[in-house]
Design a protein around this nucleic acid. Structure first.
Lengths: 227, 227
DNA sequence: CGTATTTTGTGATTTGTTTCACATCAAATA
DNA sequence: TATTTGATGTGAAACAAATCACAAAATACG
């Protein structure tokens, strides 16, 4: 059954990413051990939360000794299957697609965009580090590189169609930059990234803070008047 | 006090964005009224959740009659201050920055990138729809356009420094694409967008689902053996 | 070697979020 | 106009996530 599946990415998983980034930084600085307190402090998380998260992912430390950074990173690599490479395809070589295809951090983290696709033959001729293929070669490439995850960066209108085709050819996970909720079978993972919403929510909070601030002032004033 | 502030963007707010996008679509299709059930169904949310969210944002419908789409959209515009334009600055005209500067959806939603900045004089000469300024003109531009929100798309190394400067000149909210946790005063809103993490979390879930699936098969097998 | 100290790991508790269930109201109908 | 119908709005209940608090373990130190 096709439907809007909600693979909510758990906060604990997001925090694990935070921890990892922080650990990498600490390691570069020459630090070898951390306590839950330190790691929490650096990532804006309570020490207990760090330990609970670790416990959820089956990570054990040393009583009194804290956690060995190298050891932690190795465990995390295993959790995230960083020992193997991950082949990705990217559909849509418009503005955002092109930028994503050049995004070097993906490679640094063993995620390789092995091929990009576009319906526009002009974009296919474009000189780009990664080959741009026409859509009819999707199946072939996905199979050849055993691709399981795709990035959709096409327009709102064609996103659903592209998703359907990807899934037909064996894609199991999608990062979707198009502002539509994709209808997919239950077992397919979809992560929607909506840049407008990200920006807009900041604007919203900033505005409301400013309003809240003015209320705060009124309250303060009131207190001053009473005492 | 500077610290890692956690302005967690509430799920209810994210859902309001979902509802709005859906309402816009329904409106385009000629629909005039929705029930919480319909809207929920289209966005993958329960009807009760829709009503609770609306209640949180002070949105009232008509008993029995559901919600007038036009009315809803007007209320949401007010909530998100869509009556006014919002001026944004963008720092860092590398790969991601350039792409964001051309991202047309921002404009469609009344969010205008009024100026972009880069340290690199070469990028400043680059032909681009939006003027690229050197960093020393930040203060001037922020003040002239009364900018309150900024996008950071610089490297990991300079992100904190840039954030400090932005805040010094009156920026109250930041969407941060650099993979660092910015340390900012309490009242500053930061929304981190980490594209690697978005992709990586999908890979993680896909992998674990596949593992879970194989377990499921074992379970099924077991059942078959028993009955 | 025993005691003090410090940090983990995890039940118990609190806090927050989602769902349930139903009173309430507005429209439709007779 | 009275009655039925059907959707909202919201306390109460169930569920989920985060914090607290402390036993257990490992190290340091006398």
């Amino acid at each position: 059954m096709k439907q809007i599946t909600k693979y909510v990415i758990k906060n604990s998983l997001k925090r694990i990413f935070l921890y990892r980034a922080c650990l990498v930084r600490l390691k570069r600085m020459g630090v070898e051990k951390v306590f839950s307190f330190t790691l929490g402090h650096e990532t804006g998380v309570s020490a207990a939360q760090v330990r609970k998260d670790f416990s959820e992912f089956g990570i054990k430390g040393n009583k009194r000794g804290g956690y060995e950074i190298d050891e932690l990173l190795t465990i995390m690599e295993n959790i995230f299957h960083k020992n193997k490479d991950h082949n990705i395809v990217l559909i849509g070589m418009g503005n955002m697609g092109q930028s994503l295809s050049k995004y070097s951090r993906f490679i640094q983290r063993n995620m390789n965009i092995v091929a990009t696709f576009d319906i526009d033959p002009f974009k296919q001729k474009m000189r780009s580090e990664i080959q741009v293929y026409p859509m009819n070669r999707l199946k072939e490439i996905i199979e050849r590189f055993r691709v399981k995850v795709a990035i959709i960066a096409v327009t709102e209108i064609s996103a659903q169609e592209v998703a359907d085709e990807l899934i037909r050819h064996g894609i199991m996970g999608i990062v979707n930059f198009a502002p539509v909720l994709l209808k997919v079978p239950q077992n397919i993972v979809v992560n929607n990234v909506n840049l407008c919403d990200e920006l807009e929510s900041v604007i919203y909070i900033v505005h409301n803070n400013m309003k809240a601030d003015s209320f705060k002032n009124i309250e303060l004033l009131y207190k001053d008047m009473r005492y």
